[in-house]
């Protein structure tokens, strides 16, 4: 209704999570001394995080391993209690109202299944629909809809343990949405999937976000997921948020450069690190419009590393330019590592 302030889907305020681990004692008798000692060391998994997510947003949450992404999501879903700070999901605390909030959220853990391993897939859906008190009419509608969207019909009767990873992730997604939650937490859902399966999942997520207004928080290591799905991205490093904003600005600040490595039959003499290659293969000493930076050259391997931004150029275009410089023997592409992005972000003034 206009005029009424919309309740935030997620709000965290100065969220902190610390663990206390026993201090490791070195040496042969160290293990024994650990048994008697009470000394503990504080590990801060999440240091001081605050962010708001409005209903209907699709937010990406990225960071290196061990940065605190999973810990944050576990606090949002009520699995962990924060050491200090506040968490609200749909206006309520997941710590105090875990079971109520559970009805309003869906969770998919990429590496763990929430389905019943030995039972046919459809049984997991039946059980979950009973668990969440889904009306029979709504359940029927769900079955039809998701069969269309995810093609579940082909493996409904197969036991979950026999499903391929792609099929299982489709089933997990469907299972997380049976009760029509308003917020969906996805923890590395595309891990291990092949290109086609990833594409299909991304299409599906876009659809439910745009057509049904489901708020989505996506934790991922795959930057292509972020690029194709999220407008807003949060970057966490060592327990702190180092970036929270539009993806476009992240690209501007840190760049999301793809690394192209080209192996030549003979290294072009003109090329040196720090120079730029223009779209027609010309070698330039400063960045012109559309020129790509030469990062490194390996004389022995006869390779040249070039950075280019996917949002501005395509791999074939870069390749064509580099072909003008000499005969190419081999090509490889590498996507930017999150660690590199963070390094760049931290370098910003």
């Amino acid at each position: 209704m206009s005029g009424q302030a919309q309740q935030l889907a997620v709000r965290t305020s100065r969220l902190k999570k610390s663990y206390f681990v026993q201090v490791r004692k070195p040496g042969f008798l160290g293990g024994l001394r650990m048994l008697v000692s009470q000394e503990t060391r504080e590990i801060q998994a999440v240091k001081d995080i605050s962010f708001d997510i409005r209903p209907g947003e699709f937010v990406g949450y990225i960071g290196p391993n061990g940065a605190g992404k999973s810990t944050t999501v576990k606090m949002l879903t009520g699995i962990l209690h924060p050491t200090s700070g506040e968490v609200l999901v749909n206006g309520r605390s997941p710590q105090r109202a875990r079971q109520q909030i559970a009805r309003e959220i869906g969770v998919v853990f990429g590496q763990r299944t929430q389905l019943w391993w030995d039972l046919p897939t459809v049984d997991s859906f039946d059980i979950l629909s009973a668990m969440y008190d889904v009306r029979p009419a709504d359940y029927k509608a769900f079955q039809k809809e998701f069969d269309d969207l995810l093609g579940l019909g082909e493996f409904l009767d197969t036991p979950v343990r026999r499903l391929s990873l792609g099929q299982r992730m489709r089933a997990e997604l469907a299972a997380a949405l049976i009760h029509r939650p308003s917020v969906l937490f996805l923890d590395e859902p595309t891990i291990g999937l092949d290109v086609m399966a990833k594409g299909r999942m991304r299409e599906f997520l876009t659809k439910i976000n745009e057509e049904r207004g489901v708020t989505i928080l996506l934790t991922t290591h795959d930057l292509r997921d972020i690029e194709e799905l999220c407008e807003r991205v949060m970057v966490i490093n060592h327990g702190s948020l180092v970036y929270d904003g539009a993806l476009a600005s992240l690209r501007d600040q840190a760049g999301l450069p793809t690394l192209l490595t080209v192996k030549y039959a003979r290294l072009p003499e003109k090329l040196m690190p720090g120079l730029y290659i223009g779209p027609k293969g010309e070698v330039l000493d400063r960045p012109h419009d559309g020129a790509w930076c030469v990062l490194a050259i390996n004389a022995e391997a006869r390779t040249v590393d070039v950075h280019f931004d996917r949002s501005q150029s395509t791999a074939p275009a870069v390749l064509m330019a580099m072909q003008a410089l000499g005969e190419i023997r081999d090509v490889s592409l590498a996507e930017p590592l999150i660690e590199d992005i963070i390094k760049r972000l931290l370098e910003q003034p």
Binding site: A130, V134, R212
Partner: peptide, 23 residues
């Protein structure tokens, strides 16, 4: 526009029994 959970007001006990039966 957030979707509302499709729940039905039902006593927890009955719901629990129904769930158990399905399992």
């Amino acid at each position: 526009m957030s979707s509302t959970p499709a729940t039905r007001p039902q006593s927890r006990l009955l719901a629990g029994i129904r769930l158990y039966r399905i399992l």
